[in-house]
Every structure is written in structure tokens, then in C-alpha cells.
Computed example of a mutant assay.
Amino acid sequence: MKTFKTPMFLLTLFLCTITYSQNSADHTPWDRILVLNVTQNGLVNYEGVTTDVIIFYEYFRYLQNIAPQEHWDKKDKLAYWINVYNATAMKMILDEYPISSINEIENPWKRKAFKTNGTRYSLDDIEHNILRKFGDPRIHFLLNCGSMSSPGLWNRAYTGENISYALEERTSEFINDPQKNQITTNSARISELFKWYEEDFTSNHIEVIDFINQYAQVKVAPNTELKYVTYDWNINKKNEVTPITSNN
């Protein structure tokens, strides 16, 4: 990967924000990278990120060095692991960039790309063995694997302070995004996320439609047949467009 020079004063400014807190992680550098390089609809200017790649890698190393402590608040732990997932997916893409899909990387879901507290984790490990155990299906709408059909990457870092808001806002945004779901009163063409993680969305003894209707601006009638939009694995690059296709 081509490395771009970063002005020393900017690098110093970013690195000075990384502090080791006893009660939570400091995600300020990640927040600034996202603000500068992610659009409002969650697409990434990867060329912009590569310009500040030294800052990004320093933040990534920081995440590895500050494993959550038992006394951390649950919200801070959740924010940490969601940021870890999203930053790990981005690092895997940056390490191989330019690529057109994360699936061009050898075994991306099982690759042990993140290490903290002596343990190595893959994206699957982080999602299935850590994040899903928080018991909140809304986490699926905060995780970004660098694909067009993935929930858009938020142009903010998740923190203990904003995670409750983000869970609600990001879930509502995803469900009502016509590029991800096409919902009318009597039809529903929805993301394959709802098929892959159906047991999470129905864990409170409700149907997938019931979960969707909690957030959908247009409510789907009960017993409506669910159809699924084919997942677009192309990289979530700025100025790209996701075609909507049906996968019955």
C-alpha cells in the first residue's frame, strides 16, 4: 500500500489526544478520521484515510493496548468493541488497498486481525463471541464491514456517552434507507441481515416484521411475505452506488 506523508504538526495533534483513561477508551482520533473521511450516508474516502494512515494505525495500536477493564461501564465496553470491529475491518481493507471488495482478502471473517490482552480476534470472533452477547440486536446496524450493503459507517466514533442514541438512530436510519430496504404496507424487500441474524431480531418473542415496524416509517402488514435484497459486497467507497436487486 502506498503511504502518504502526514504533516508532523497534524500527527502530533492527533496523537496527543490518545490518553489512557482508567474508565474508558479515548476514541477522539478515530472520531476525527471519520468526520474527515466519511460521508453523511456512510461511504468512505479511502484515499483520504490513507493520507492519515499513520494516525489510524496509532489509534489501532492504542485499541489493542487498552483492553476493556471489568469496572468499565457496559456502554463503554460496547462502544469499544463496536469501534474495534469497524476499525479492524477498515485496517484489513487499507492493508490491501486498492481492492473492490473485502472478500478479495483471504478468509477475512476468520483472520485474527486484532489482538488485545494476549488474545487474537477475528471479525467473526468480535461479532459473534463478544458483541452479540450484549443481547441487543440493534448492534448489527452499527457494524460496518466495508461493503455497500453493510450499515453505513457512522462519521462519528461510538462512545459510552452516545451509544444509546446511536443504537436507536442508526437502526431507524438503516431500516428506512431505501438502498437497504424497500418497505410498503403490503410488501417488504429487506436486507439479508434480517435473515442471517433472525434469531437476534426475534429473541424477545416477536417476529422480524414486528422488529422492523418498531422503526419503519411505513408499517408492514402482519404475515407479509419477506423477500431479501441481494447483498452488495463491493467496497463502500465514496461516490459508489448500490443497485437494488431481489433475492427471493
Results as ranks from 00 to 15, higher is better:
G135A: 09
K180T: 03
E168I: 10
S164M: 07
F141V: 12
N176V: 00
S149Y: 09
G160R: 00
N162V: 07
S187G: 02
A166Y: 02
K133S: 15
P137H: 08
G160T: 01
F134R: 06
E161G: 01
Q179S: 12
Y165V: 04
F141W: 12
F141D: 10
G146N: 08
N144Y: 05
I163D: 04
S150L: 03
D136M: 12
P137V: 05
S164W: 00
N181S: 06
K133N: 15
S187F: 05
S172M: 06
F141A: 11
Q179A: 07
W154C: 07
E161R: 09
D136V: 14
W154F: 12
N181H: 04
F174S: 04
K180W: 05
F134K: 07
N181R: 04
K133G: 14
W154G: 00
F141N: 10
P151C: 11
Y158P: 02
M148W: 08
T185A: 15
C145T: 08
P151E: 11
E169V: 07
I183V: 02
Q182N: 12
S164L: 12
N144M: 04
D177H: 03
C145I: 03
I175P: 01
E173S: 15
F141H: 14
N186H: 13
N144P: 02
E168C: 00
P178D: 03
P151T: 11
Q182L: 12
S150V: 04
F141S: 10
T159V: 01
G135W: 09
C145N: 09
E161V: 12
S149Q: 12
Q182S: 10
F174G: 03
N181F: 04
I175H: 02
T171V: 03
E161T: 10
Y165C: 00
Y158T: 01
H140V: 04
D177M: 01
T171D: 06
I183K: 00
G146I: 06
S149V: 08
C145L: 04
H140I: 02
N186M: 01
E168W: 06
F134H: 09
I163A: 05
D177K: 01
T184L: 06
G160W: 00
K180E: 12
M148H: 09
Y158D: 03
I139K: 13
